[in-house]
Design a protein around this nucleic acid. Structure first.
Length: 362
DNA sequence: AATGCGGGGAG
DNA sequence: CTCCCAGCATT
């Protein structure tokens, strides 16, 4: 039996084997009880680059707050971002709102029903379009996500670097061949992702109890821990944030982040970024309006420290609380506004800011 | 083809 | 520590 005919046999047996495995290992997840494209769309956007365990409570809260796409379309974008707070990749929330409005206002509340038309919506790429098309409408189009790359790379011994365009096409083509043998495209797509999440895991795949063990090129050659091949990512950038937390009469000065940077449309404080960690307030180039304030009214001579690890940046933050006298409260730097504690609670904020507020004010 | 974008959990 | 998660948009 040569390798080629082994591979062909594996291809025809792959989907049925996963389907069988799935029947016994399927988790009970809320978005598996519906074919409502709105709910499936919402769950898929939430789950982009996000583990099920992390995304699930957000899904529940979103469905509670916005039971239909029309409800979401009506929402204030700030409230939507506030609900999204802590999930990261906030462009997902902005695109969610944009698409909800588009579907409601331009499509009469009806989601597009094909892979190709779904792909045209903001925030929907190849993976999400395939997921919605198959789960909600039964279209026979394969999902290709991180789980699928891992499972296929191992079972079929694909050593191509999955970050390259060539490999992406190779995996997509393979996935298309495989789904042809599936009984039900939706179940099969769920099955392969579930299999990757539970059985064929990144670190310690459960090969001993794997139904594909004797067909898996990686297992048979002992290479499962080396696949998939993925170019290592760029080193994380270190940044130093110095926050001046202006306070007056129980209110804090905050501003919306609008720059082309992290945390767009979330709220934080007056920020001075430096190339090196700062030890004292006098080392900072302070805003003109705050100078007299800083001389006399700084509350925190030693700042609160904060750390935020992002996948692409490591942020070291320091917070100086500064009491602003009434005489200067209308002289805030451009963009800053006073907010009461209640208002601040309703603003969407990065986790770094929320953590600071919690540790400072409870 | 490269880069930027969050935050958290697992090993 | 490192890796990576039901990826996508922009350049």
């Amino acid at each position: 039996m040569n390798w080629q005919s082994d591979a062909n046999k594996t291809i025809t047996a792959f989907a049925p084997t996963l389907d069988r495995w799935y029947q016994h290992h399927k988790r009970d997840l809320p978005w598996r009880h519906t074919r409502d494209p709105y709910r499936i769309w919402l769950s898929e956007i939430i789950l982009q680059q996000t583990r099920v365990a992390q995304g699930r409570p957000y899904y529940e809260r979103f469905i509670e707050a916005f039971p239909t796409v029309a409800d979401m379309a009506r929402a204030d974008e700030r409230d939507l971002l506030r609900l999204w707070q802590g999930l990261g990749y906030y462009s997902r929330a902005r695109n969610l709102h944009k698409t909800a409005k588009y579907v409601t206002q331009e499509l009469g509340g009806q989601f597009p029903e094909t892979y190709a038309s779904l792909l045209a919506l903001k925030g929907i790429g190849t993976y999400t379009a395939a997921a919605i098309a198959s789960f909600a409408f039964g279209e026979r189009v394969p999902v290709v996500d991180g789980n699928v790359y891992r499972v296929l790379a191992r079972v079929f011994g694909v050593v191509d670097d999955i970050t390259t365009t060539r490999a992406k096409k190779l995996f997509a083509d393979l996935a298309t061949r495989l789904i042809a043998f599936a009984r039900d495209p939706a179940d099969y797509n769920q099955a392969i992702m579930e299999f990757g999440a539970i059985q064929c895991t990144p670190g310690a795949p459960d090969c001993l109890l794997c139904p594909l063990q004797q067909q898996c090129r990686a297992f048979l050659t002992g290479q499962q821990h080396k696949l998939p091949v993925k170019a290592k990512k760029v080193p994380v950038k270190q940044r130093f944030f110095n926050y001046l937390v202006f306070r007056n009469n129980g209110q804090l000065a905050m501003r919306e982040r609008t720059a082309k940077d992290i945390w767009q449309q979330l709220y934080d404080f007056y920020l001075i970024e430096t190339d090196e960690p700062t030890e004292a307030l006098r080392d900072l180039a302070l805003p003109v309006a705050s100078e007299p304030v800083v001389q006399t009214e700084a509350v925190d001579r030693f700042p609160e420290a904060g750390q935020q690890l992002l996948s692409h940046q490591r942020i070291e933050a320091k917070f100086w609380m500064i009491d602003v006298p009434d005489a200067l409260k209308n002289a805030l730097p451009e963009g800053l506004q006073w907010y009461t504690p209640d208002e601040i609670g309703r603003l969407p904020k990065p986790v770094l800011i929320t953590s600071y507020l919690r540790q400072k004010f409870g």
